[in-house]
């Protein structure tokens, strides 16, 4: 199996000039295609920072990140935006969606950015929303959906761009246990059936239990890396 993500000696120091915070320090992480990996660790251990660096949302202060062999830490901001559009799906903790667009329009939106044709967009949006169990909510706005449903739309949107992998920073943090379970099931199904790679951070033990690999961070360093 090939590595789709490879970080080498990856570091991020916040406030280097005042009180430096080593949010991520010297992380070497390799992620293979098809993984279902949880990033865990105490609050402030650097999970979010690491995901942001891998996802090309932030620049490291040291080391590098390669996605499919391409070093993304050297890219200009605009190039990086384009790279994200073509390669990475994102699910954030909450309020992922554009409030004035319906569920299917939200899903279509990334495809619009990719200049996919209208027919294709509509077809795929319906497919994806059906896949995440929201076939009957196509025309609902985010405000008419529950938190769990919104996160499922966000997953559908992340999938819509046909990314190499999906990064999710605490996707279940704002959900009740039933919605959490539901979202995880959907993600697991997509991982198994569609071979979609997921990397997610979490504090929730039940979520951790579902992961097949658990990477634990403490003070910005990987302290354990277990396949289960």
């Amino acid at each position: 199996m090939s590595n789709i993500i490879e970080s080498h000696n990856l570091s991020k120091v916040y406030n280097p000039d005042t009180i430096p915070v080593n949010a991520v320090s010297g992380v070497d992480l390799k992620v293979e295609e098809g993984e279902f990996t949880a990033l865990v660790g105490p609050s402030g251990s650097g999970k979010t920072t690491l995901l942001n660096l891998i996802g090309g949302l932030d620049y490291p202060t040291g080391g590098n990140v390669k996605i499919g062999g391409i070093d993304i830490t050297e890219m200009s901001e605009n190039k990086l935006i384009d790279f994200r559009l073509k390669n990475i799906g994102f699910v954030f903790q909450a309020y992922n969606l554009i409030p004035v667009l319906t569920a299917s329009e939200n899903v279509e939106f990334v495809m619009l950015l990719q200049k996919t044709s209208k027919n294709e967009r509509e077809k795929r949006a319906i497919e994806l929303l059906t896949e995440v169990g929201l076939k009957d909510k196509l025309n609902k706005r985010p405000s008419e959906l529950s938190g769990g449903q919104q996160q499922r739309v966000a997953v559908a949107r992340a999938l819509a761009s046909k990314p190499r992998f999906i990064l999710a920073d605490e996707p279940t943090a704002n959900l009740d246990s039933k919605s959490t379970e539901n979202l995880l099931e959907i993600m697991a199904k997509l991982n198994i059936e569609d071979k979609m790679t997921f990397i997610f951070s979490t504090h929730d033990q039940r979520v951790i239990d579902k992961a097949r690999r658990v990477v634990t961070l403490v003070d910005g360093k990987i302290v354990s890396d277990v396949k289960q």
Binding site: G55, L57, N78, I81, D82, R84, L85, K86, G89, F90, F92, Y95, N96, I98, P99, V110, L113, Q114, R157, A158, S161
Partner: peptide, 16 residues
């Protein structure tokens, strides 16, 4: 601002 952040994250160019 939050929404703009999300849009840029998922791949919308700032110019657009």
């Amino acid at each position: 601002l939050h929404e703009f952040g999300i849009l840029i994250a998922i791949g919308m160019k700032k110019g657009l």
